[in-house]
């Protein structure tokens, strides 16, 4: 009885896997708080050469971890999270006295006042402490991690929700243009989608979804960020605040104004893609993120600029 049951499960699932792969689906992981917590745990203590990336999806899609490693020998830990602000994590890193490396803080949503972003950041931060404390959870995560990398049918592209959505929209499920590597690097292939449509969605999101901090709130946020920066840099760490290639105009104007405020209030090294002719030449096909092909070239250029700017401050950790 059990043999037949196993056969009845394995055969359809095997066929499903084969068909999925034939249609371009590949094993992919879902970005979960556990995956984030696992990556956070990879940050080596007291390692001056450690590099960690915080921020939103702009950093997750824009910084190519392989290229970064190739350019300077250090593989960054990718801790940017889709739709969150970096300040909560920067503060968490500041409290971690063992961190003496380089923190790259991308400014997307850093100066927004968005309850959803805050909630998500809190969820991830809370998850980290419980993940660290639970052997069983870490073991369970590794099993899911292993399976997620082995089977296409457990990828988020073939989740029940995606399949239902695809059928509701009247078509078969398609592989997503977004893909994530096990170390949370993300790749956006914008040749697979209608970029103009995505740009319209981005404009809509930025004009309706973003809640800008008022002056008083912005000052308070800047003070919190600066306190974290000071604490990290006082023990030999380094913080670089990065403004990625410009987003759609609806977002970019407010970003530019806030960028000036950031530069005026922080002791961190500030680096805006808009100020460098090479970095500024990159365009975001969806109005907010880089295509994975551009992300590789952008990362190489970013490392070169970073290396120079850090060297100007006597910091040779990326040499």
């Amino acid at each position: 009885m059990w043999a037949l049951a196993a056969l009845l499960v394995l055969l359809p699932f095997g066929a499903f896997e084969w068909v999925a792969r034939a249609h371009g689906f590949r094993p992919a992981l879902t970005d979960t708080p556990d995956l984030w917590a696992y990556q956070r745990m990879q940050l080596r203590p007291h390692d001056a050469r450690a590099v960690v990336v915080f921020g939103s999806s702009k950093a997750q899609l824009g910084i190519n971890l392989d290229e970064f490693e190739r350019a300077c020998g250090t593989r960054p830990i990718q801790l940017a999270i889709d739709g969150t602000s970096a300040h909560a994590f920067l503060e968490e890193l500041a409290r971690d006295e063992a961190f003496t490396g380089l923190a790259l803080v991308e400014t997307g949503f850093l100066f927004d006042n968005n309850e959803r972003h805050e909630r998500r950041a809190q969820e991830y931060a809370a998850s980290y402490s419980s993940f660290r404390g639970s052997v069983a959870r870490r073991f369970d995560f590794r099993l899911h991690w292993f399976i997620g990398q082995a089977l296409a049918i457990v990828s988020p592209d073939l989740s029940a929700r995606r399949i239902t959505e695809a059928f509701s929209a009247g078509h078969w499920p398609r592989p997503s243009y977004l893909r994530m590597s096990p170390d949370r690097g993300r790749f956006g292939d914008y040749q697979m989608v209608d970029s103009a449509l995505l740009q319209r969605l981005t404009v809509n999101e930025f004009t309706t979804g973003g809640i800008t901090l008022n002056e008083e709130q912005l000052a308070a946020r800047l003070a919190r960020v600066e306190a974290a920066v000071t604490r990290i840099q006082a023990r030999g760490g380094r913080v670089v605040i990065i403004r990625m290639p410009p987003a759609v105009a609806a977002r970019d104007d407010s970003d530019a104004a806030r960028w000036e405020a950031v530069k005026a209030h922080t002791s961190a090294l500030c680096l805006s893609a808009a100020d460098d002719p090479v970095l500024a030449s990159f365009k975001c096909p969806d109005g907010n993120h880089l295509d994975y092909r551009d992300a590789a070239r952008f990362t190489r250029a970013l490392v070169a600029v970073l290396r120079t700017r850090l060297a100007e401050r006597g910091d040779t950790r990326l040499q």
Partner: peptide, 20 residues
């Protein structure tokens, strides 16, 4: 019957694996 039990088990297991 045993074959129906196998089928039910397979459906249950499949549902657990694919559960949303």
């Amino acid at each position: 019957p045993w074959w129906l039990r196998s089928t039910v088990l397979a459906v249950l297991l499949g549902a657990v694996i694919l559960a949303p």
